[in-house]
Design a protein around this nucleic acid. Structure first.
Lengths: 195, 195, 195, 195
DNA sequence: GATGAATGAGGTTTCATTCAT
DNA sequence: TATGAATGAAACCTCATTCAT
């Protein structure tokens, strides 16, 4: 890949995650990248394409297979300890989101507004869910409805924690492992005295 | 309140929810409201102020008074059935969000990028949490950490469901009550083979 | 005069002298005056009229007659000491300009661009010059050309000093009497060893 | 320099001098220059910057190098005739101001309101004054105070004449040389019956 | 007399994008 | 490949002024 193209992508990543897609101008990206504004358009026909080009590989090539492979591997090792499996998956997903934090912010943001991006995410998530059916079955949920709720619950918990930790109160000291354990406690045992 | 000011707010609400904040021009708002563009700026110093002015009451109404009053009333009636109380609260919050769905979508989106909006939300949420301490205590969580996790969990579940239902798959038929019961089941009893 | 009209004039005076005529909006004037913007237009058909209304009385009723009367009186007292006469006139003009400093600033500024204002000034200055013919004659210049140069010289010296003192270096401590004496020394005796 | 940038500067010069800074819109400049309005802002971040960019070289050329070099050269040739030296300097300065008359008018006007412009002028004038110390010393003024008064006097006389000639009575026929001689007569010998 | 509301016209500036080099 | 120059379109916002109350 042309070196300036790489610079453009990296700069766009930073800018989009800080100011949002519409709040970022191609001029800002060019300045941040230290390249000419026109160079961006040599590599991406459109600003929108730059965003998709940014998001697609993460969504497609990294998120899905990694999670899948990991889950399968864990499944083999700890078939009788579903809670441990889920713990590892959640922690690794969280680590991944933390590593790509700017991009994840973009996805949260833009997906709410950008249908293309949303479709891309949904399209990539669906097969993952299918492949994780077995793992989930071990944990309890068996009907499709229950499985969907399970996925949504786990996703909501992680996303909610990520937003709280990285966006709402980024200055606090956070202990990811402890928080994930807290989520698991609720998820598996429920809350409260009668939980 | 000046009648055209009202028109401006309503039109802005529609426009923002359809095209997003940055995707909406003040001209569009003025045309939709049937007023002069300058009129908008007589009443709101800035387009951004218009958004905040729009968001503030909804945020306040979503979070604070309704929830508080309702919770207290429910608490008196069903002091021994915390799960019922929470069910009512969640359903009414969900109904409210559904009613203001376009605006809520804007809030989700913009809050990720707009610090002012974020601060406004946090400012409105804080007193609510304090006032709900007692209710939550009945349900189980007593330490501050546990309470925080409880709030985050409930918030994440509702928000996650709202996004799934209203944004990701709005074409599906949803049964809010059933889904809330699903959330409560997990929240109180956890999942798992014996859940 | 209606009290709010007075407030408007005073506020306009301040604003114009600080930011210039074009740089001042009627909104700024209204805010500074603590009155409604529309009130200004009840009293002055136009922003431009407000400026003229501001400038005219000073130019017409104050500058001219005062100088004239004063010169005549001095002439009677010190007929044989023209330098003393001029000293008094210059000092009093300077004091006057200092007293109305904001307005004088406006005149300097706007007269360069505003023909109406310029004409008003020229129209009021002409008779003054004619009436001062005798005084000037005593000092030396007798031909019309010489008189004109004399007036221009004195005017330039005072205006130049005023601008230096009040606009370029307002923070310095200035001794008006000493500076006027310096001007007179040059004006009457010239500079330098051979002067 | 980009050709359209040059066009923009020239058009701005014309427009500003005809309608003043605030009275000129960037659209007018663009039309007069035959370029797109956005082109102006590619080359000058702000309309105000365009003015400063316009003014800086003229101020510099009016004040510093020409005057300095010329004065030094004249000093060598006519060391014993300071009046001749000053005559040449004044005439050449006047010629220069006449050549850039429109811009000079803007400078007079804007400098009264625009601090940046004022600072620019002061910044350019200061070194000139320092370098002219020797020349001035020959003419008489030796103390710093006297020198300052001398500079102010010469400046006031030239500016006053320029304004009279070019703004107040531009329709008259003027003889610059004769008028400068008149100024010099006053400056060196003073007025008065024996002057 | 006083003003809040309202606005058409127009201001400066930004934007994504094209093109010649 | 890379970019400075260029721009039409449109953005947000300001202005002097009118009008109903």
């Amino acid at each position: 890949m042309a070196p300036k193209k790489r610079l453009a992508i990296l700069a766009a990543l930073d800018c989009f995650s800080e100011t949002g897609f519409d709040g970022t101008s191609t001029k800002m990206i060019a300045q941040r990248a230290g390249i000419g504004e026109a160079t961006i358009f040599r590599h991406f026909p459109t600003k929108r394409d730059l965003l998709l080009r940014l998001a697609a590989p993460v969504i497609r090539h990294i998120l899905t297979p990694a999670a899948e492979q990991q889950a399968v591997a864990l499944l083999d090792q700890h078939r009788d300890e579903p809670r441990l499996i889920l713990r590892e998956v959640m922690l690794s997903r969280l680590a991944f989101m933390t590593h790509y934090e700017p991009l994840v912010r973009i996805l949260f943001q833009e997906a709410l507004v950008n249908r293309e991006l949303r479709d891309l995410i949904v399209a990539e998530a669906t097969p993952l869910f299918q492949q994780l059916t077995e793992v989930v079955g071990i944990m309890g949920p068996v009907t499709p409805t229950d499985r969907e709720r399970f996925f949504r619950t786990v996703g909501s918990l992680i996303a909610g924690y990520f937003i709280h930790r990285s966006i709402l109160q980024p200055e606090r000291d956070w202990d990811d492992a402890a928080e994930v354990d807290g989520m698991l406690a609720i998820l598996f045992d429920g809350i409260g005295p009668k939980g």
